[in-house]
């Protein structure tokens, strides 16, 4: 009898489990790792949605393009502005339907498909103990003594690397190639991705590294280390905005919409700064953690819309490659 009750219990439990709708969200690896925002977001959303939010980490756009319309994804989070053109052209995404008035980005945003959830300024981060006077512009870096070295990421394999060459191209236009030639002696090396470069920087291999203006917040908040700082450039900084989008072929449209709305909510936004170490996209400054409010900010945000960025991309990468190959 007991066994029967137990069995009946099992059946009901699994039936209940089967009825819980699943929202599948593709996200980058850093996002879903136990130190990233993923676990907190999953708990907070599941508390309100009566659903099972499942993050599937990995390459976002390549995977989605491989899968095409049969993708299991309902929502994709972690795209960035330099891929939106390709993502849009795939026709795999639906309008997000959210009111964008809540956004607190340094740039204006009216895209109806890609919804910002966090952002930061692409920056050169330096170690104050080894570089007391940081450069205040790319030209200042170019003119600095030769032992002022920086570690970059490759624009052909890294999002931040690509953002940097677009930043230089946006500021210098036709002079970008010449600027890269002058910067080349200061480039110690170029890495495949951000982690290698940042690891080398914290090991002291170079006094400066390509990262984000919010990177120092980690060192201050988690390590009590105030010697890592972002060099603020007079010409303005490239705004790196991360985005979410709803997949048009989703079989959970209501849940997907609810998640898109949740992205802009304070519950989601409040988790971003100290898990993703970036600025929240829709949270007023006075709600930011103190350490983020205290970070120095550039006077100007530089942003290229996707058409401009796509038009400049190949040329910008080629100028970078040629200058650094000599």
């Amino acid at each position: 009898m007991k066994a029967l009750v137990f069995a009946a219990g099992l059946v009901t439990a699994s039936a209940a489990l089967a009825e819980t709708p699943v929202l599948t969200v593709y996200a980058p690896d850093y996002f879903v790792s136990e130190w990233g925002p993923g676990p907190g977001i999953e708990a907070a959303f599941e508390a309100q949605c009566a659903c099972d939010l499942q993050f599937k980490p990995g390459d976002l756009l390549p995977r989605l393009l491989l899968e095409g319309p049969q993708t299991q994804a309902d929502v994709v989070i972690g795209l960035y502005t330099d891929v939106t053109r390709k993502a849009r052209a795939s026709g795999l995404f639906a309008p997000h339907g959210q009111d964008l008035a809540a956004l607190t980005l340094p740039i204006s945003w009216s895209d109806d498909t890609f919804l910002p959830f966090d952002w930061s300024y692409v920056s050169l981060v330096y170690d104050e103990t080894r570089l007391p006077v940081p450069p205040a512009s790319f030209e200042a870096l170019a003119d600095a003594p030769e032992d002022v070295k920086v570690i970059l990421q490759d624009p052909r394999s890294s999002e931040s690397g690509l953002a940097l060459v677009l930043w230089v191209k946006a500021v210098y236009g036709d002079r970008a190639g010449e600027i890269w030639q002058r910067l080349a002696p200061h480039v110690l090396t170029v890495t495949k991705g951000w982690s290698e470069a940042y690891g080398l920087f914290t090991d002291g291999e170079a006094p400066m590294v390509l990262s984000f203006s919010t990177s120092p917040a980690y060192h201050i908040a988690a390590e009590g280390d105030t010697t890592k700082k972002a060099a603020i450039f007079d010409e303005g900084h490239y705004a790196y905005v991360e985005l979410a989008a709803k997949v048009s072929g989703t079989d959970q449209p209501e849940l997907a919409d609810a998640f898109m709305a949740f992205i802009l909510s304070p519950a989601f936004q409040g988790l971003i700064p100290e898990t993703n170490w970036s600025y929240p996209a829709a949270l007023p400054r006075d709600a930011w953690p103190q350490v983020f409010r205290d970070l120095p900010e550039p006077a100007k945000a530089i942003f290229l819309d996707e058409e401009t960025a796509a038009g400049l991309r190949d040329e910008a990468i080629e100028e970078w490659r040629q200058a650094l190959s000599q």
Partner: peptide
């Protein structure tokens, strides 16, 4: 790439990575 000091040290595998992950 890292020990080669930059794009001088571009290998075929980088080209594959770029074509698949970046340019699709």
């Amino acid at each position: 790439l890292t020990l080669g000091g930059g794009p001088r040290a571009t290998t075929l595998e980088l080209a594959i990575y770029q074509a698949l992950r970046f340019d699709f």
